[in-house]
């Protein structure tokens, strides 16, 4: 898994490439928690290139959502691949997360 980070005026865009699973979720966890501790409370996670996620990965996303919601910030996801979207649906996370089809659409909410 690779993680890219792009800071714009509106928010921080995190891009995930490859598999987000039990072996590597802690990398994403550290990245997101560092951002949140540095008071970046507007985060967009672009999942366009993420082709696998396990419950460990979902846990990190949920943690980030909880923390940012408490800080009254905004945490959104975009560009989920079809099979990833299915996993989100099975887990019921589509009701919890704000998910947009494209990055452009997502950026409008900040």
């Amino acid at each position: 898994m690779e993680i890219s980070e792009l800071k714009t005026n509106q928010c921080v865009i995190i891009g995930i490439t490859g598999r987000l699973d039990t072996t590597n979720y802690s990398i994403l966890e550290k990245k997101l928690m560092d951002l949140i501790e540095a008071h970046n409370d507007k985060i967009l996670v672009d999942c366009a290139k993420m082709d696998y996620v396990s419950s460990s990965g979902l846990r990190i996303l949920l943690m980030a959502l909880k923390k940012i919601t408490m800080a009254k910030g905004k945490f959104v996801l975009c560009s989920l691949q079809e099979n990833i979207r299915e996993i989100f649906e099975i887990s019921g996370f589509t009701n919890i997360f704000e998910i947009y089809a494209t990055q452009d659409e997502a950026l409008k909410v900040f």
């Binding site: 396990s54 419950s55 949920l62 887990s91 919890i96």
Partner: peptide, 14 residues
């Protein structure tokens, strides 16, 4: 609600 959800059961749910 969101705050009380346990992530543990999710894997088994999958």
């Amino acid at each position: 609600p969101l705050e009380e959800r346990q992530i543990g059961g999710l894997g088994i749910h999958f």
